[in-house]
Amino acid sequence: MDGNDQQSEPIPIGKVYLCPGETQPISKSVHLARLSSGYDACSNCEHRFDTATLPGEVTKKVHGSDKQSQQSQHVSRFSGFLDRGVGIRGLYLNEMTRPVISKFVEHAVELLTQSRDSELTVDDEFADNSPSLLSDSALHVLVAYDWRPSSADLAVGVVPVLKRSGCEIIDLGQTSRACFDFAISQFKSDLGIFVTGGNGVDGVNGLDILGGDGREWAHPGELTTLLTRLNSPASRSSRYAGNYQAFSLVDRYEQHVRQLFDHCKPLRVALACGDPLTMQILGTILFEIGCEIDFLDLNFSSSDFPLQAEAFRCEVRDAHVDVGFLIRPDSQTVHVLDSRGRAISPASLKDILTRNDEAITLGKDGRFWFTGSTPQCDAMNVIAHLLKSDPNSWVSPLKR
C-alpha cells in the first residue's frame, strides 16, 4: 500500500452502539456491561431499551429513571401562565399535557392533605393512633371539564392520580364552571379540579383549582406554593385506592337557576354565549318568562376577542333590542350592552345591582360575586338581578 494512501476506517458490522457524549462506538458486550452496572449515560441513551437477556431487576432502575426524567422534563418545560391570577393555563400539547395535568393534581392533593393534617387536633386518648387516622382519611374531590375538545383529553389524566392518592372522586363530566361551583357547595367536597381554558382561545387549556369553601386557589397563595413543588416527586397520601363515581348535577343546577328568575321583567334580549350549557339553560328560561330572544353567533375561539365584541355591539345596535348579554366561555363573565350597543361599565352595573341592598363584590377581572348566593359567581345570576331591576335606570331612553 502506498504510504500516501489514507487508512480507511473499518465499516461497522451490525448495530452500532455509541454512548452519549462519546465519539467512538462500543461493542454490544460493552453496552450490556454498562447497562448492568448502572452507567450514568445509559439513562439518556437511545439504546437503553436494548437489554438482550439481562435480568429485569438489572434494567428496571434504568427504565425507572428514564420515566422520572421524562416527567420532570414535561414539567420543567411548562412555561404557561396564570389566568386572572387564579387559573393555570398553557398551550395544549405544547405546554399542557396529561403528564403536566397529572403532576399539578398530584401536588395539589399532597398540599391540601398536608395543610389539613397540620390543622387537625386529636384527643390525647387517641394520640397513639393519630398517624394512621390522619393518613387514611380520604379527601373528597370533584372533577369536571369544560366544552373544549382538548379538555376531555386532559381530564383523562386527572382521575387515575386521584384514585392512586386514595381520594373519593365524583366526576361531573362536561359542565360549565358556574355549575361546577354550584356542585362544590352541594357536595361539601374538600377540593375541586376543573379542566378549562377559561376565556382563552381554543389552543389554550389548563386547570382551575377550588377549595372546599368554593374559593379559588390563587397567586399569590396556594398556586404559588404549588408551582414551586412541580419538579419534586409528590408523596402518596394514602395506602388505599380511592373510589370513583360519575354524577350529573345539571338538572338540580337548572332548578336552582330558575328560582333566580322569579318576578323578572320580560324584555327583548340579544344573547351570545360561549358556554353551551349556559346558553341552553338561559335561553329556555328567558323564553319561558316571556322574553323575545335574538341569538347571535360569535366566534369565541377567536384570538381577537375585542373584534368579536365589536361585532356583537353592532348587531345589538341594529337588532333594536332592549339589552344585549355577551357571556364569555367561563360562564361567569358577562358584558351588558344597552339598546344602542353601548357597554354598561362594570362599575355602573354594580350600582344597578346593589340597589336591592344585596352584598355584591366586583372583582378586578370584571366578574361579580354575590355574597350568600350559590354559586357566588354566575353570569346568569347577574342577568336575573338586572331583569328584576327598574329598566328605566339602564334601558336607553329611545327604548323606554
Rank of each mutant, 00 (worst) to 15 (best):
G198R: 02
K388P: 01
A138V: 05
N4W: 07
A41K: 15
L230K: 11
T333K: 10
Q308K: 04
D297M: 09
L249R: 03
M279P: 03
R367L: 10
T374S: 10
G212E: 10
F81V: 10
H140S: 10
I327D: 01
G211M: 10
E110M: 12
K188N: 14
G274F: 04
Q280A: 14
G211L: 09
L326D: 01
H140K: 15
S29Y: 07
F312P: 00
T121W: 12
I88Q: 04
Q70E: 14
S393V: 11
R215G: 06
H74T: 02
T113A: 12
G363I: 00
T59D: 03
D2M: 06
L260T: 01
S301G: 14
S150G: 05
V336H: 11
L207T: 08
F325N: 02
S27C: 09
C167R: 05
A343N: 08
R258V: 03
I327F: 03
V30S: 01
L207Q: 09
I88K: 04
S8G: 01
T228A: 08
S345G: 02
I13P: 00
H320M: 09
N205C: 11
W369I: 10
S76L: 13
R400A: 06
V316C: 07
R148K: 15
I289W: 04
K163G: 05
L286S: 07
E216W: 09
L82R: 14
T175S: 12
S27L: 08
A234R: 07
L226W: 03
A379W: 04
D181E: 15
S373A: 15
E216F: 13
Q24C: 06
Y240I: 13
S176D: 04
G212A: 08
S69F: 11
S151E: 07
H140R: 14
D50C: 11
L267W: 03
V250M: 05
E292D: 14
S72W: 05
L298W: 04
L139V: 06
L172G: 04
L154E: 05
D190E: 12
F368N: 07
K28C: 05
V141W: 00
R148D: 03
R268F: 06
E110H: 07
E254R: 15
E315A: 10
S396W: 06
Q71V: 02
C19T: 10
I26D: 05
P329D: 13
S27G: 13
I360W: 03
S302K: 09
E358G: 00
D338V: 01
N356D: 15
R400Q: 15
I13Y: 12
I26Q: 07
G341R: 01
E288F: 08
R313N: 02
F261W: 07
T225R: 07
S345W: 01
E22S: 12
G192V: 06
L112Q: 09
T354L: 04
S189K: 07
N392W: 06
E222L: 10
L142I: 11
I281A: 09
G206P: 04
A178S: 14
G221P: 03
G64V: 03
V156S: 09
W217E: 02
S396L: 11
I327K: 02
E315W: 00
W217M: 14
D50T: 05
L387S: 06
M279R: 14
L54Q: 06
I101C: 01
H47Q: 12
